[in-house]
C-alpha cells in the first residue's frame, strides 16, 4: 500500500531537482529564510533584555520549540495548503477517483524536498536553546523536552490541515490560512504575556497557541504562568495537540464530503 505514495514522492523529488542550480539556491535560502525569525528575536533583545517579563534564554526556548515543531509539520503536511489550487483547477476530482487516501495523495504529490533543510536547522536551534535556557531538569522535564516539539508539530499539522480545509467552502481564501499557520507560529514563539486584549484570548486560549511553546516552556523552566493558568495545564500540550489533530481530521472529512467539483 505504501508503494504508490513512494512512487509519487520519488517522482516529485526527481522533478524538483532537475534544475540543479535553482534547487540548491532554493534549499539554502528557504532554510535561512526561517532563520530570520530567530534573528529577529536576537535583534529585539539587543534593545531590551526582557520581553513580556521573560529573559533571553527563556524566550529562546519558546522560539526553539516552534523552530523545530513548525518545520516538522510543514514538511509532513504543509503541502495541504495547495488544496485550494486543486479545488479550483478541478484536479481534486482526479484525486478522489484514485483508490488512495485523498489527504495522503495531496501530501505526496507536492512534497517539497527543500523543506527538509529547515527541520535539520530547527533541530540545531532547539538543542542550542536547551543548552542556553535555565531548565529545571527532572525526569518529567526530560520527557517533556522530547514531547514538546513533537506536540508542537502535531498541533501545527492540525492547523495546516484545518486552515486548508476551509478551501472546500471558500475557494478564493488566498492568504487566509497564513494568518493561522505562519501567524500561529509567530504567536507561539513569543511569551503569551507580550500580547494583550481580545487578540491574546483568541490566539492563546480559543485557538490554543499558548499550549504550543509558551506553557511547555514554563514547565521546563519551572515557572508559573504570570497570567494565572494552573500549573498542571503546563504539561498538557500533548493532549491538546492530539485533540486538535482529532478536530482537524473531523473537519477534513466534513470538507471532503461537502466537496462538489467546480465543474471547470
Amino acid at each position: 500500500m505504501a508503494s504508490p505514495y513512494w512512487h509519487l514522492l520519488v517522482a516529485q523529488v526527481r522533478s524538483q531537482t532537475q534544475y540543479r542550480f535553482s534547487f540548491t539556491l532554493e534549499l539554502v535560502f528557504s532554510t535561512v529564510l526561517t532563520l530570520l525569525d530567530v534573528a529577529t528575536v536576537f535583534v529585539l533583545f539587543t534593545v531590551n533584555d526582557s520581553l513580556g517579563g521573560f529573559g533571553g534564554g527563556e524566550v529562546f526556548l519558546m522560539v526553539g520549540i516552534c523552530a523545530l515543531g513548525f518545520p516538522l509539520a510543514d514538511f509532513a503536511v504543509g503541502n495541504v495548503e495547495r488544496l485550494r489550487i486543486y479545488v479550483r483547477g478541478g484536479l481534486f476530482d482526479a484525486v478522489l477517483l484514485r483508490p488512495l487516501s485523498a489527504l495522503g495523495q495531496l501530501l505526496a504529490m507536492d512534497l517539497s524536498a527543500r523543506r527538509a533543510g529547515r527541520v535539520v536547522q530547527g533541530l540545531v536551534i532547539y538543542v542550542v536553546a536547551l543548552v542556553v535556557a535555565p531548565i529545571a531538569w527532572s525526569p518529567a522535564a526530560a520527557v517533556l523536552v522530547v514531547l514538546a516539539p513533537l506536540s508542537a508539530a502535531v498541533f501545527f499539522g492540525a492547523i495546516f490541515v484545518g486552515a486548508a480545509t476551509v478551501a472546500f467552502w471558500w475557494i478564493e481564501s488566498g492568504e487566509f490560512a497564513n494568518a493561522f499557520t505562519y501567524g500561529g507560529r509567530d504567536f507561539a514563539s513569543y511569551p503569551t504575556t507580550v500580547f494583550g486584549g481580545l487578540f491574546r484570548r483568541v490566539f492563546a486560549y480559543a485557538l490554543g497557541f499558548a499550549f504550543v511553546a509558551y506553557l511547555p516552556a514554563l514547565a521546563l523552566l519551572g515557572r508559573s504562568d504570570p497570567l494565572g493558568v494552573p500549573d498542571w495545564l503546563r504539561w498538557c500540550s500533548p493532549l491538546v495537540a492530539l485533540f486538535a489533530a482529532g478536530l482537524a481530521a473531523l473537519f477534513w472529512r466534513t470538507g471532503v464530503r461537502h466537496y462538489r467539483s467546480t465543474g471547470s
Binding site: 529585539l44 531590551n48 509567530d186 507580550v194 487578540f199
Partner: peptide
C-alpha cells in the same frame, strides 16, 4: 479578486496585532 483581497487584508491585520504587541513590548 475580491475574496482574495478580503482574505489578504485579514491576514495582514492578524500580523499587525502580532508585530505591534511584540514591538510595544520591546519598547
Amino acid at each position: 479578486y475580491r475574496q482574495a483581497t478580503v482574505a489578504g487584508a485579514f491576514t495582514n491585520t492578524v500580523f499587525g496585532f502580532m508585530r505591534c504587541y511584540v514591538l510595544l513590548s520591546v519598547a
